[in-house]
């Protein structure tokens, strides 16, 4: 009955999907420490390069990254030749040529990362009906940002600690109890295993994904990629590295922004201090 109030405010179409979307939401992602956390934090180029490697070798098969051009990779510390070489590994469609035909050619630094699928329908068809979303802005499009991404990538049933599973089972049991209480029943379903959550077959359990059922099978595991710099190829490292990389794709100007911010704030502190002194002096003769 109370939910009807939402309906009063929103358009009918909006409201109907609202009710459906009010399904269970994932639990809070644990906070990680990032090289770019805090006021003085900056991106760690070595980590971004590792993260790019994870994206390239694992995620790029399904996920596009429309807003990133090969030239942007220079910011990860690759030199001009390296960027050219990376670009040349990809084929992009160009044209039409003088005959009016489209043709494939190796990518140049000015090209954007090609999409793994020709269109959304093709993407959905290859992924059991779910479209893998573009990852360029993902770290800013989720409330907990990189913390969420890392937790989600490590949030599959085999990977999460037992305590997290128990926590979810308790939350869901409690929800069932409340729901039963509301309609006057004393009986309710206890959630004691992932099966009890009743997720659709097409989805995998994920502790941090809203609703727990994600249409992406666990993309990472230990030794998913082999790092050139000798960093241990653990699931946690992979997840953290690709999450940091996605923070960079979402907010490439983060380092510049913070550096400028420190200078501006120091300036404003002095500026306000001087003005405060001037104000005191100016007003002194009034009282």
């Amino acid at each position: 009955m109370m939910k009807k109030l939402v309906f009063a405010a929103a358009a009918a179409a909006v409201a109907m999907s609202l009710g459906a979307a009010q399904a269970a939401e994932g639990i809070q992602a644990p906070k990680s420490t990032w090289s770019f956390s805090g006021i003085f934090g900056t991106f760690d180029q070595a980590q971004l390069q590792r993260g790019y490697q994870v994206y390239k070798e694992v995620c790029a098969g399904c996920h596009a990254m429309d807003l990133i051009a090969f030239r942007n990779l220079a910011e990860l510390g690759y030199n001009e030749d390296e960027v050219k070489a990376i670009a040349a590994e990809y084929d992009v469609t160009d044209g039409p040529d003088d005959e009016g035909e489209m043709f494939d050619r190796p990518a140049r630094p000015s090209d954007y990362f090609p999409n793994p699928f020709p269109n959304a329908k093709a993407a959905a068809a290859s992924n059991g009906g779910s479209v893998p979303p573009d990852l360029s802005l993902m770290a800013k499009a989720r409330a907990a940002g990189p913390d969420y991404l890392k937790a989600m990538l490590m949030g599959y049933e085999e990977d999460v600690p037992e305590s997290v599973l128990q926590q979810i089972f308790e939350i869901e049991t409690e929800k069932n109890r409340k729901r039963a209480e509301e309609i006057g029943l004393t009986d309710y379903n206890r959630v004691e295993s992932v099966e009890d959550l009743g997720l659709p077959d097409t989805s995998s359990f994920n502790a941090y994904f809203p609703g727990y059922g994600i249409a992406m099978a666990a993309p990472l595991g230990d030794e998913a990629v082999e790092y050139a710099d000798g960093t241990p190829a653990t699931l946690e490292n992979h997840a953290a590295d690709v999450a940091a990389f996605l923070m960079w794709t979402a907010e490439p100007a983060l380092d510049d922004r913070k550096q400028m911010g420190i200078k501006v704030i120091i300036f404003l502190l002095i500026f306000s201090g001087v003005l405060y002194a001037a104000k005191r002096k100016c007003w002194a003769d009034l009282h």
């Binding site: 499009a141 913070k258 501006v264 404003l268 104000k279």
Partner: peptide, 30 residues
Amino acid sequence: DAFGVGVFLLIFSVFLFFAPNFLGHPDNYI
């Protein structure tokens, strides 16, 4: 007023440079 501007911009800068998306909604990046 100038002193007030200094303090106002100081607080503003904390948001602008260190939490520019704090007052926004993540869904608007979709």
